[in-house]
Write a protein that binds this DNA or RNA. Structure first.
Lengths: 207, 207
DNA sequence: CACTTTCCGTACGGTACCGTATGGACCTCG
DNA sequence: CGAGGTCCATACGGTACCGTACGGAAAGTG
């Protein structure tokens, strides 16, 4: 795509001399990770972006308008990611399950984890955020279930293991595992095996 | 311990006509569950207790003093609970594990769950809260491990399953499971079996 | 070169909160 | 009954934030 020369000139000199909604939303996501939704405040973001809130109220109606943009941006990114991570790879389904677990249970992707947690904290007190998180979770559970099914796991057990998988990764991201004694890395590997690989029939009978 | 007659009289007539630190801390815990740590504000608690903040600053040095009290109160209660729940009952260890899972993964004890989540949100941004949560988690993991050991599970697997247990219950409490399709109750039961009962050897070799 | 649009700075009123100072009601005890 | 301690109300200054009004610089447009 072609850009106007004037635009190019501005972008070369100092990036974001002109802000747009996306830049504000990105700053909001950063702050969300660090301080939660109550921490994303207009004047604070303005200071972080080295502008005043005069800019903010040009791009957004009010704070709620920004928060709605944050929700949509996050939702789209998460759904796109989960679809990409679970795109059918014949024979590689188990490795894909392992990767899905690692995305949120290792110390890489720390910022993504913090946003995830802040999002759920937000969802606990705001119906709009709750609806978004619920939609993202539904996508994730569906996609993970497909992987298990492709591994030969029966339907109900595939649903159950998907649920355990996500409950575990979210839960473990809330525990400060580094502080515990024992070989955390090995424990996490074992748990990963337990969730993804050991396809023993579950106790409750399949009707 | 004996109480002054005058104190007794006051407590009989209308409870809490005189407030004490415990009453403020209890109100703080209630608000913590609903709005997180940023929501526990002096003047808001005062309104909830139908007094003014003049009372608050009599019992507490400042807001941080209250928050420290909240941390200590919560810590003591959680440690006392986990010890009680895992007190040795010969032959009943498996049932005890089931109960530990149910405490935080069923819709009963909703307030306890909300406080738990708010506590971890708090711990993510405050070192003092992080230390408390870490201490409580260490107790829980130790006690749960003892139960698994009593069930005949070998040491390392007992540690691993304890970790999975708590990561799962905390994680599932962050997901709005009621909104998902499928038989959630049965899925939770199956997961409980998977965590607590199926003592298949784990993949990684025991050295 | 006017003229408009885009984008941001400044200034303002209003709200919610923190912590302090001070006085007063009530009880207790000599 | 007076003196002192306990517990709370009131009033105040200060900070941080929201949203609005308005002005102005810079760039595009005819």
């Amino acid at each position: 795509m072609d850009l106007e020369p004037s635009i190019l000139r501005r972008m070369e000199k100092t990036p974001r001399l002109q802000l747009d909604r996306a830049a504000w939303i990105q700053a909001a996501l950063d702050t969300l990770a660090d301080e939660g939704v109550t921490g994303v405040r207009v004047e604070v973001l303005a200071k972080r972006l080295h502008v005043t809130k005069g800019s903010f109220y040009w791009h957004f109606k009010d704070r709620q308008d920004l928060l709605s943009g944050v929700l949509e941006t996050w939702k789209d990114g998460r759904i796109r990611d989960i679809i990409k991570q679970t795109r059918p790879e014949a024979g590689g389904e188990e490795a894909q399950i392992f990767r899905v677990i690692d995305v949120y249970s290792t110390s890489r992707n720390r910022k993504g984890i913090l946003i995830e947690l802040a999002m759920r904290e937000w969802a606990r007190r705001d119906p709009a955020a709750a609806a978004i998180v619920e939609e993202v979770d539904a996508w994730r559970l569906r996609c993970a279930r497909e992987l298990f099914l492709a591994c030969g796991v029966p339907m109900h057990e595939a649903s159950t293991r998907s649920m355990l998988l996500y409950a575990y990764v979210f839960g473990v991201s809330m525990m400060n595992c580094e502080k515990f004694d024992g070989d955390i890395t090995r424990m996490k590997d074992d748990i990963r095996e337990l969730i993804a690989r050991s396809h023993t029939p579950l106790a409750s009978p399949q009707p």
